[in-house]
Simulated assay, not measured.
Amino acid sequence: MSFNVAGRGALITGAASGIGLAASRSMLGKGLQSLVAYDLNPSLPDVAEELRKEFPGTEIITHVADVTDPTSLQAAFATPLDGGRPLTIVSNNAGIGGADWEKTLAVDLSAVIMGTSMGLARFKKEAAGGVIVNVASMAGLAPMSFDPVYTAAKHGVVGYSRCFQHLIKKGIRVNCLCPAFTDTPLVQGLVDDPKFGPAGKMAIESLGGLIPMENVVSAFMGLVENEDNNGAVMTVTNAHGIMPMKFPLDP
């Protein structure tokens, strides 16, 4: 069965660039009617204005704030949509890497848990069902030795996202996206970092280079639109394309 995004409302963190922006544009192109875009980047209002011009008639609401701020995040999740439209799509996508391990855990894991909890609460309140896609990484499935804290955070996102399959009874699905290195500002920042750069470049080369954004967006849309994906962990690599991850203890 297919979950049609047309006419729906969505909230995406990290929406100003990278996977968040590309996923937003893809859903708007398929008729998404309301988008709550959340990002710390001050360019977010300008990005939103470009989207309004590209997709006239859509409602785009911006929240420029830190995803680790629970008050700001809760305000975004409480945003009313035009016509009382329910919020039925959430993507916890914001992420960082780098040397500040506490901030990395706060953004890459704690904020994902907060965003999922807030999304589920709104889904249940509005009783319209919905789908959450948490963006992790291949680092959530295999060690990335040059950034172990990022690896730990993304492993946490994968494990956490797999724990909600029982909510399908209420029409709610939670899935996880695990792309390898994608051409995003986060990855470029990692490569340019003097501490992590050389190892990062080697890791990218070992996986066949950067993944085209369209491949990652295709996997994202599959997790949203294909209702068979419930508790799914979808990997995206240049070597194997888009593939669901199988775990040893899965039934």
Rank of each mutant, 00 (worst) to 15 (best):
A121T: 11
A106C: 11
L21H: 01
Y150T: 13
P248G: 05
H240C: 07
P198Q: 09
F55L: 00
S218P: 00
G189S: 09
A239T: 07
W101Q: 07
G57S: 06
G29K: 02
L120P: 09
P45G: 03
M234H: 01
E227K: 13
V149C: 11
I61Q: 00
P194R: 06
G98L: 08
V67A: 14
G241S: 07
N41W: 02
E102Y: 05
I61F: 01
V216Y: 00
R173T: 08
I12N: 01
A111P: 06
G9A: 13
S34G: 06
V47A: 02
H166V: 12
V131Q: 02
K195W: 05
V64G: 07
D82P: 05
Q33Y: 07
G7Q: 04
G241Q: 03
I204M: 13
N4C: 02
A142E: 15
A136F: 06
T235V: 10
S34H: 03
T88D: 02
A153W: 06
I172L: 08
L51Y: 00
K30A: 14
K103N: 11
I172Y: 03
V112W: 03
G29D: 04
H166L: 10
P56K: 07
D183K: 03
G129M: 14
S24A: 15
P244N: 11
I168N: 02
L207S: 13
H240F: 10
E126N: 05
K53D: 10
D192M: 08
G200A: 15
V216K: 00
V233Q: 12
T151D: 03
G83C: 09
L35M: 09
G14N: 03
L223F: 11
